[in-house]
Design a binder for these strands. Sequence first.
DNA 1: ACTGGCACTCATCCCGGTCGAGTGCCAGCA
DNA 2: TGCTGGCACTCGACCGGGATGAGTGCCAGT
Lengths: 340, 340
Amino acid sequence: MGLDDRKLDVLRAIVEDYVATQEPVGSKALVERHQLGVSPATVRNDMAVLEEEGYIRQPHTSAGRVPTDRGYRLFVDRLSRVKPLTPAERRAIERFLVGAVDLDDVVHRTVRLLAQLTRQVAVVQYPSLARSSVRHLELVPISTTRLMLVMIADTGRVEQRLVELPGPVAADDVTDLRRRVNEKLCGEKLADTPPLVQALVEEVPQTVRPAMTTLSTVLLETLVERHEERIALAGTANLTRGGLLDFQGSLRPILEALEEEVILLKLIGEVEPSTLRVRIGDENEIDNLRAASVVSTGYGPGATIVGGLGVLGPTRMDYPGTIATVRAVARYVGDLLAQN
Amino acid sequence: MGLDDRKLDVLRAIVEDYVATQEPVGSKALVERHQLGVSPATVRNDMAVLEEEGYIRQPHTSAGRVPTDRGYRLFVDRLSRVKPLTPAERRAIERFLVGAVDLDDVVHRTVRLLAQLTRQVAVVQYPSLARSSVRHLELVPISTTRLMLVMIADTGRVEQRLVELPGPVAADDVTDLRRRVNEKLCGEKLADTPPLVQALVEEVPQTVRPAMTTLSTVLLETLVERHEERIALAGTANLTRGGLLDFQGSLRPILEALEEEVILLKLIGEVEPSTLRVRIGDENEIDNLRAASVVSTGYGPGATIVGGLGVLGPTRMDYPGTIATVRAVARYVGDLLAQN
DNA sequence: ACTGGCACTCATCCCGGTCGAGTGCCAGCA
DNA sequence: TGCTGGCACTCGACCGGGATGAGTGCCAGT
């Protein structure tokens, strides 16, 4: 049962070689490429133990060994050394993120950067409305019975909705509503707004009561219920690296999963502060992603977290490198947001 | 050189069978499955001519025939009969598009609908700013030296940009600016605004001149230069149907092309009124898409066109069906936009 | 101008044999 | 006890050849 240091070294060597070469690794090749200080026979014995414990397996009898999901897990938890970013990578991050004019711009640049650096599929969640506060609400008259509601959050996100009023409303009344709504809701966490919106409806003068009632419905939808989380995606072409060997030959399930925003949110949305999650193969709850690994973390200005980001790739990925990159990008983006 | 009616019939039969079965079609199978009224030998002679003319080819000596890009082109131009939508499809379209609350919502639903109906990759361009007019401009003070500029177009699109002012500006001045900007620009085509913006800078009182200058830069960027065309994409998983036989085995180039907004715009953005374009294989200017076909058209309220939409699939696609669907969806979306 | 017949081509499939990487086991040695 | 070298064994990958059959081109006959 005991996995002594050498066995762990062997496992590490197997993971590293397999990730690099994409081919099952045999005992002889191992001792040649790593300074293990023992003979292939000894390595074989260690391998037998590792296999018994479920950390590696052989695709077929006379082939080398391949790490299992469990093996990768052990590797990530205890065997991988932090791999510092290269100066080139640091420069790439900085160069990529300066000059973003917009929240949209920031998110797009980030997701492309992540995809490019990790050479995998990158996913970035827009700052979550659930974690934002109201900065400003704007009511723009479109016609006498239609308003455009624009909500600007402190995270820079802007949401808009069309409001169909039950009857015509005068311009002055719209101005009045705008003032009231802003006074009441500005600065509030979105999650805290429902009772305030309710109060608004009651405070409002009789003449605009119907309009306010309709508006309140849309407000609640926009602020809380519809929890419209947005997601940006990039690097799907990277799925085809490794010539269809990864993902057991079919990209189908992966691509399907990537089309579902709900699934993507599950992947990168559930973030605890300053934690980085690595989900390897079977550890993914989503069946379609059983052949993939996901590295994700939260980001936000300072210590607060407003959204998640991460990458998805084959289980045989360069975990240390990917983890370092994801962490670094998240920190840079956080700093960027803090400046606004 | 002459392609008599029967030869055209043969070509049509080949295209239809090949699209259906995905396998090279031989002379014998052809006469079995279609009422051509002649023997396989005759069909073979016709095939020889068709091949000489470049409409079909054989993958290898003892295989059946496969249409070439040129063959598909002839089929689309002269041989395909219009395939009316099934009632189920009509219902699907209606069901899918009612209840959209938002421009975002409309676009998302549309692109998913298209992908689902055609079982291919769908692309929808947001209403182009270049073809929109200004409905309203809003200036939201974020701090004394920062404004959020929100532009609402008549097509429902909303764009926002952060404006860094050169110095602090009073709330009253912001109100004044807002009024001036709206009076000057509302209702104007975005393309016509540059001289008006220029005029604004000169009309404005000395005190807000610096702010207005900065604002004008951002305005011009937002309205004209940045031509921020947005695109929605869905159905990439459909690329994997046909088990890697389509697209000559590699999705790589296709996925790469789909990541580039510029390319997508090229595909569906260049629309002449009420035209439907079919680009088959080699006809695509983009090298990465030489193995694919694109069916695209414009959409918009009434006869005007505000954006493009289309689908991308293998050259061996069901052209009549796809064309009918794309056309129908474009019309429905146009009607939907007309209601706003 | 169409048809049936026929010889021919060539990809696919199946089979058996060879090759070699990699293993497990064991006896010997420190 | 733990490591090592040696050895027999397994089994997938690769290769070549023969059989199969779909599909063709050509030609003579109607």
